[in-house]
Design a protein around this nucleic acid. Structure first.
Lengths: 152, 152
DNA sequence: GTCCTTGCAAAGGCTTTGCAAGCGA
DNA sequence: TCGCTTGCAAAGCCTTTGCAAGGAC
């Protein structure tokens, strides 16, 4: 579940270079490694987890660089931020249209794909210009509530 | 838009009494006034706004009581918490099924009602037991962007 | 009277910021 | 070289917690 197919990771890293260039941002080791960390897992790590993992390779990286880098990656649309209610922000580099299942006990987050994408409600223009629509499903995952599991 | 119809506020306050009793919680002035503040507006105030408003009537109320009260109200299902990305938590006492439009510039939140409620995706049982589904639409409200209509 | 609640104060945890040195283009 | 980036440290901000006094039932 957590790991992303290596060819997909390559594709994501390619986009990083491209998009940084488009936005006039420099390609630094820090930027590359922070993005690689998010791009190569589906487990939606938080900033501190990313920090600890990147530090194994870039021993001098600092906490605030991770935060700043994630903020610019988000601004460029390369990663998206998920705010589980009352927890720390988590990051995700899945560029496909998708949504999230959040376990209210352990905080784990999984990508989900809806059968049909919801449409914007009539009259939304009265409120403003909509730019994104995101669905959060909350519940308890099987790891936290194993007795509920009855599927192979 | 912000104010709630007085009869609806009454109904909500009635539920407060009832639900507190069911849950064995005492009805205190603080609890009543914090809830009244959330229940009588549709503007989704944050904890500090609620604190400042309640303090006009209960001058000795403290910040942490507001937080604790909101937490118990949420646990009883009387209010729900909305986490706009990267902002402070906001609260809402609308008990009807609804979703939110969040302005990414000013942070204002409005209730929205979808034409059709999304259904849980096939295979969600593989992840866990789903308990709630909530849609966040993000965009820019008319107050923040009164006259724009430009697309490349 | 019992036990939940509150207020006060302080700590906690995540995130952001100022500034000088560092490094990519 | 030029100016975006980083690291360090410290502050900022929202929220939570420990404890004794207070209030609901």
């Amino acid at each position: 579940m957590p790991d992303i197919d290596p060819s997909e990771v390559e594709a994501r890293l390619g986009r990083l270079t491209e998009v940084c260039r488009e936005n006039g941002l420099r390609m630094t080791h820090q930027r590359l490694e922070v993005f690689r960390e998010v791009a190569s897992t589906g487990e939606h790590p938080d900033a501190d987890t990313i920090f600890r993992r990147v530090r194994k390779r870039l021993t001098t990286i600092s906490h605030d660089t991770v935060y700043r880098t994630l903020a610019s990656l988000e601004e460029m649309g390369l990663v998206s931020r998920v705010d589980p209610i009352g927890g720390r922000a988590r990051y995700d580099a899945n560029g496909d249209t998708h949504h999230h299942f959040i376990c209210t006990k352990c905080g784990s987050i999984s990508d989900i794909y809806l059968n049909d994408e919801p449409t914007l409600p009539d009259g939304i223009e009265a409120l403003g210009s909509a730019e994104s629509l995101h669905v959060q499903v909350r519940g308890v995952c099987h790891t936290c509530n194993p007795t509920m599991r009855n599927k192979p």
